[in-house]
Amino acid sequence: MAHAQALTEADKDRFYLTEDHHPENGTLLGFWIYLMSDCLIFAVLFACYAVLGRNYAAGPSGADLFDLPIVAVNTALLLFSSITYGFAMISAQAKKVKPTLAWLAVTGLLGLGFLSLELYEFNHLIHEGAGPQRSAFLSSFFVLVGTHGLHVTFGCIWLVTLMVQVAKRGLGVEMKRRLMCLSMFWHFLDVIWIGVFSFVYLLGVLK
């Protein structure tokens, strides 16, 4: 018996690393891996746009279509929504329900502002005859920017869901975990938007 115990102790010593740092709750890591897979979707769409972005089919180019002031306002809205979400997370850490809800509401409104400007822009393009079916450039543009917009839409729905949950159940451990996941999602969308405004809009106007 004593021998067996000595063995297990020795085993424990030898393999102590397996006990250390194992994830107690893999949600955040799992969500991160989801975000990485999402990142691959966007990488493929960016590659698609990079390949097709100059095939105008004798139609309008980015320099003819893109309205940089609108893009700048959109970028500002998304950036502001990132920091207001940060403030919401700080309030949630301090277990203050009302400021958390208020900051989440501001974040949601900024997200909706972003979406409505983007929809306005799409609508404008389609009415000018520069819809997704016009050329390969416009097809890849609408798919890339539209996929990002769709992500923001789902982010907004998720945000409202969490606001209802926070209002009903307060800020427990599991609620903070959910807020943390949406925080990663929201900031990740802002990172993707950096690629979109730099690569698609700014370089598109340059060409």
């Binding site: 994830p23 107690e24 709750n25 955040l28 920091i83 940060g86 403030f87 997370m89 700080i90 850490q93 451990v173 903070k176 975990r177 943390m180």
Partner: peptide, 14 residues
């Protein structure tokens, strides 16, 4: 650690 996850301070965000 898990509870907080990796959360930033006000200074970080600003």
């Amino acid at each position: 650690h898990e509870d907080g996850g990796a959360h930033g301070t006000l200074k970080d965000y600003v």
